[in-house]
C-alpha cells in the first residue's frame, strides 16, 4: 500500500479499512469468504483489489482537496523514511502514476501474475504488462537520476 500512496500512515489506515471490509464480508458470508469453493488465492486477490481501490480513492481525495489531477498527487506525498535509498526510491515513485506504482508493487513485491493484477486493477494482462514495462523504465530513469553511480549499462 505504501508503494501506491507513499505515505506510511495513510497506508496503514487503508490496510485497516481493507481488513475491516474483509471482516464484514466474512461475517456476511460474501464471496470469496462465504464460498466453500473459494481458495486462499481468491481471498488474497480480493484483499488486494479492495486495497487497491481504496488507495486510488484516497489519492483521488487528495486530488480533490488540492484540485490537482490524479497524476499530480504525488507532489503532496510526505515521506518518513530518511534512508538514502528510501529517499531515492520515493523520489522515483513521485514520477509514477498511482496505477503504475500499483502494478510495480503487485508484481515485484507480491508476485502476482499479469492476469491477476489485471483482475485487481481492472485491466487486461497485456495492458498490465505494458504498464509494468513503462513504469519500470520510468523507475529506472528516475532512480538513476537520483543515483547516477548506479548506471551500469554499456549502451549509449
Amino acid at each position: 500500500m505504501r508503494g501506491i500512496v507513499g505515505d506510511s500512515e495513510q497506508a496503514r489506515d487503508l490496510v485497516q479499512d481493507t481488513c475491516y471490509e474483509a471482516c464484514r464480508a466474512a461475517q456476511r458470508g460474501t464471496p470469496p469468504f462465504g464460498s466453500t469453493s473459494s481458495s486462499e488465492t481468491d481471498m488474497r486477490r480480493w484483499l488486494f483489489r479492495v486495497g487497491y481501490n481504496r488507495a486510488i480513492s484516497a489519492l483521488r481525495r487528495r486530488r480533490i482537496i488540492h484540485w490537482l489531477p490524479l497524476e499530480n498527487v504525488r507532489l503532496l506525498i510526505s515521506f518518513e523514511d530518511e534512508s538514502a535509498e528510501g529517499q531515492d526510491v520515493r523520489a522515483a515513485l513521485a514520477t509514477l502514476t498511482p496505477q503504475d506504482a500499483a502494478c510495480l508493487t503487485l508484481i515485484i513485491i507480491h508476485d502476482f501474475t499479469a492476469a491477476e493484477v489485471g483482475q485487481i486493477v481492472g485491466a487486461s494482462p497485456q495492458a498490465v504488462a505494458k504498464r509494468f514495462s513503462r513504469a519500470k523504465q520510468r523507475l529506472r530513469d528516475a532512480y538513476l537520476a537520483q543515483d547516477p553511480q548506479l548506471e551500469g549499462s554499456g549502451h549509449p
Partner: peptide, 24 residues
Amino acid sequence: CAACRAELAVYDRVEAAWRRTFAP
C-alpha cells in the same frame, strides 16, 4: 552481450531497492 547484461543488472538493482522500500 555485456552491455545488456549490465542493463539487466541495473533493472534488478532498482527493483530490489523498490522491494526493500515498499515490502510489507
